[in-house]
Simulated assay, not measured.
Amino acid sequence: MDMIADPVRTHEAAAEPRLTAFVKDRALAAGFDAVGIVRADSVPAVLGERLEAFLSAGRHGSMGWLEEKAGWRRHPNALWAEARSVIMVALNYGPDTDPLASLERRDRAAISVYARNRDYHDVIKGRLKRLAGQVVARAGGDVKVFVDTAPVMEKPLAALAGLGWQGKHTNLVSREHGSWLFLGAIFTTAELDADTAEVDHCGSCRRCLDICPTDAFPAPYQLDARRCISYLTIEHAGPIPHEFRRAMGNRIYGCDDCLAVCPWNKFAAVTREAKLAARDDLVDPPLDELARLDDAGFRARFSGSPIKRIGRNRFVRNVLIAIGNSGRPDLAEIAGPLTSDPDPAVADAAEWALSELASRDSGTEICASCAPHQSHPIQ
């Protein structure tokens, strides 16, 4: 959370008829692809109630920070009582190829589209702070800037600001940009004209629900993060539960299935932002190459990338699960030495990979939950 303040509050400037138009013009000039505004006091209480239901059901898994700051997250004014308007911005990160095609290359790693280049926090935050400074210079008052690092419900606020709607997969969908949008928020004490909330355009479509390999959606518009591959590969520490390992396929960081299959993507364009365009070495990289990374090699390869956040151990754990699903017995020579890795979750994943490769090479299928774990019986 970053705060920019004008030493003199100028309430008269906040009443300027053209202020809202100025804010939107500056947002687009800063490189954002969409901008909308919601009044802080107009956020319905039902959003907080849905959050509480999600947390009460334990569907947030080990993401304790969601529960710890739920009180602030449930409403903008709970986070900052002085906020009068919320400026929501979006940046398109649309890919130039179909992410689902990566799933067919089983000896290669499928990396989520958003993580194939620079960390989006770094890309968005600088221009968002510049925009916030322009708002203060024009309207006076105070602002606070958020880029997915504070207790803010970005997706519901973006929907209320007219940027899109939350689809049945709970992610934001836009008629202009499909599913590929990063979000940022500026809370301000300025009085701005609100946009009309977007309506739901999902209709009877349920492609996002049906494609999920781990059945992470208990019902439309509901997500159980504990079953989501994005959660399992990024947020979840320790060994991956056995029931999800085969379903992970070659997804080693995140999962784009529910996003990529959305029909509204037919209107999406490839991102204009060079820092978000995929790096060549992060488009379907070889599994054997990634599994060999030590901590120094991991840090060097993923410097400036959001992947760096999960650390080498969690990353290699994911790669080993993908090796076990590769159907490539020759990759056993890569997994073998990692059964002695100092990290128990890595060693466990290596043993599972060897078991899977051996069973498929011999034509014998072993139940994933019954595969031997040898010296690392971690469930």
Score class of each variant (00 low, 15 high):
residue 159 A to H: 04
residue 269 A to F: 02
residue 346 V to R: 14
residue 358 A to T: 01
residue 9 R to C: 03
residue 356 E to R: 15
residue 98 D to C: 06
residue 206 R to E: 09
residue 230 S to V: 03
residue 51 L to T: 06
residue 19 L to M: 09
residue 214 T to E: 12
residue 61 G to M: 09
residue 310 I to S: 10
residue 376 H to T: 11
residue 130 R to N: 10
residue 313 N to M: 03
residue 104 E to N: 10
residue 309 R to Q: 11
residue 233 T to Q: 15
residue 353 A to I: 03
residue 123 V to N: 09
residue 327 G to H: 06
residue 160 L to V: 06
residue 264 W to V: 01
residue 349 A to P: 13
residue 195 D to Y: 08
residue 176 E to T: 11
residue 152 V to H: 09
residue 325 N to H: 09
residue 57 A to Y: 05
residue 31 G to Q: 10
residue 372 P to V: 03
residue 132 A to E: 11
residue 81 A to H: 14
residue 181 L to V: 06
residue 260 A to Y: 12
residue 131 L to E: 05
residue 102 S to I: 05
residue 276 L to R: 03
residue 314 R to G: 09
residue 327 G to R: 06
residue 228 C to N: 15
residue 67 E to S: 10
residue 115 A to D: 01
residue 76 P to S: 13
residue 350 A to L: 03
residue 76 P to T: 12
residue 306 P to R: 06
residue 235 E to F: 00
residue 184 G to S: 06
residue 279 R to A: 03
residue 359 S to P: 07
residue 185 A to D: 08
residue 187 F to L: 07
residue 216 A to K: 14
residue 154 E to K: 05
residue 3 M to W: 13
residue 282 L to G: 03
residue 279 R to F: 02
residue 138 R to L: 02
residue 142 D to H: 15
residue 369 S to D: 15
residue 46 V to E: 09
residue 277 A to P: 00
residue 166 Q to H: 01
residue 177 H to Y: 14
residue 303 S to K: 15
residue 7 P to R: 00
residue 161 A to Y: 11
residue 239 P to Y: 03
residue 78 A to V: 05
residue 58 G to E: 08
residue 80 W to H: 05
residue 26 R to I: 02
residue 248 M to C: 07
residue 240 I to N: 14
residue 242 H to L: 01
residue 82 E to G: 08
residue 190 A to H: 14
residue 257 D to C: 04
residue 114 Y to I: 00
residue 102 S to H: 14
residue 308 K to Q: 12
residue 95 P to Y: 02
residue 351 E to W: 05
residue 326 S to K: 12
residue 289 E to W: 02
residue 327 G to M: 02
residue 212 C to P: 15
residue 180 W to Q: 08
residue 276 L to Y: 08
residue 158 A to G: 13
residue 354 L to E: 03
residue 76 P to A: 13
residue 206 R to G: 07
residue 96 D to M: 10
residue 9 R to S: 09
residue 270 V to Y: 05
residue 53 A to F: 09
residue 349 A to L: 00
residue 267 F to L: 01
residue 331 L to Q: 12
residue 238 G to T: 13
residue 314 R to M: 07
residue 97 T to D: 10
residue 90 A to F: 01
residue 253 Y to M: 02
residue 187 F to A: 00
residue 340 S to L: 11
residue 30 A to L: 01
residue 205 C to R: 14
residue 11 H to M: 00
residue 167 G to D: 04
residue 270 V to I: 14
residue 329 P to Q: 09
residue 58 G to Y: 06
residue 213 P to Q: 09
residue 175 R to G: 15
residue 367 C to P: 00
residue 331 L to C: 09
residue 329 P to G: 07
residue 237 A to L: 13
residue 255 C to A: 12
residue 337 P to W: 11
